[in-house]
Design a protein around this nucleic acid. Sequence first.
DNA 1: GTCTATATGTAGATAGAC
DNA 2: GTCTATCTACATATAGAC
Lengths: 241, 241
Amino acid sequence: MTKTRTGRADDASDVREVGPAKEDGRLLRGEATRERVLDAAERLFADQGFDAVSIRQIAQEAGVTLGVVGFHGGAKLDLFRTILARRVEMLSSVRLKALDGIDARREPATLHELVDAYIGPYIEFAAEGDPQWNAYARLIARTVSDDRWYPQVRDFYDPVARRYIDAIARLYPSADRETIAAALVMSVACMLSVVASTARIAGLSQAEAADLPTGAPDVRAYKSVLIDFCAGGIERAITSA
Amino acid sequence: MTKTRTGRADDASDVREVGPAKEDGRLLRGEATRERVLDAAERLFADQGFDAVSIRQIAQEAGVTLGVVGFHGGAKLDLFRTILARRVEMLSSVRLKALDGIDARREPATLHELVDAYIGPYIEFAAEGDPQWNAYARLIARTVSDDRWYPQVRDFYDPVARRYIDAIARLYPSADRETIAAALVMSVACMLSVVASTARIAGLSQAEAADLPTGAPDVRAYKSVLIDFCAGGIERAITSA
DNA sequence: GTCTATATGTAGATAGAC
DNA sequence: GTCTATCTACATATAGAC
């Protein structure tokens, strides 16, 4: 089990190093390759899941050879962890900043605002032109509901989730925390499913089963339905308990 | 691509044959083995996903040898499909029967009733003592949100979903169908996530991160929260559109 | 930094003995 | 029906040339 390699892949668990290293304002050569490898892996893992993807596929998708993936990504599992850690910071910080903004005001928060602050950034990232963020969004969906991966992302997401639970608890002082926690977990499930299932929604919108004429609709089309659903769901769950 | 095998596995796509064959009231010897193989595969696929499970693992879990799995299950993909088809009929028929019961009455349906009729059976199956149903319930969660598997289960679930969408549409005549479809897809996501994430809910219920003292709580503990959440969510999504 | 070559393991599938 | 033995393919991982 001794590790003898000395490549960049050893930085895998170093979350502090978020963006690519730069020099003279442009990417270092190796960094550009590293990003290509991580991006390719991110897309493939999001589409097919960890086990269905081979390192060979990743190499091909990234346009490099097998050894290069090993050099930049390390073992397959390290590669996966690196991908998860790479973007989590940004999503969490946006969520926390939005919550701070609400807390700093004079007027009390509304539930709808809180839900929007938590869910909105994810949808915006997923809908953004950058296909890598969309891939990451779908990748998260694979991790949160899987006992094998959840322990690896738990420490990233749960602290932020707790702050939102606290905020909702302040809004409904008589509600019990477990109900709020359940409602938040369900909200997250809704959020993830909308990104992953736009095609299914479009399909079920037709009265009869039919091939979808066009590609899957944009996530943003369902953003307001999603937030309304979650806000209404949380409120009902809390008030009827 | 010609198939030369002649084992029972060729019955894989024959959905009509649901239960095990019997003779003199007891299982035939081969049938019992077949059930053991399917059950073992169902548990492992539910726990780890299709790609993470090897046929060798299945054989070990079932207490048979490698060749036996091949004989009863056929190719790995056929085995997976057989498992999905084996139980879907029962869940769908309970859902449809519940809906028929509501439709047959004089009084109009309530939204809460409809949600309960759709979601309730799944939770009951998942919570039931039989660990195989729980495994199946978790396996469904892996298929619905995955582009690779959804096409395989779509024909099983979507017709029933459409009938429930119709029923909700009758309740809210001015609502547009796409909103209802989105709300139902989100409800399904909630339903699946509660079964898969009881541990996470329990964890987030604590104010601080902590190891959970006991095992994951029973799904049924969250059943009413779940149904309230979905009913409240659907109503809000529809009425604020 | 990148590539080639390869060591080593394990996967799925099936033929044929019992 | 079940088991053993094995074929073929492809996986991860890494050493060493460039």
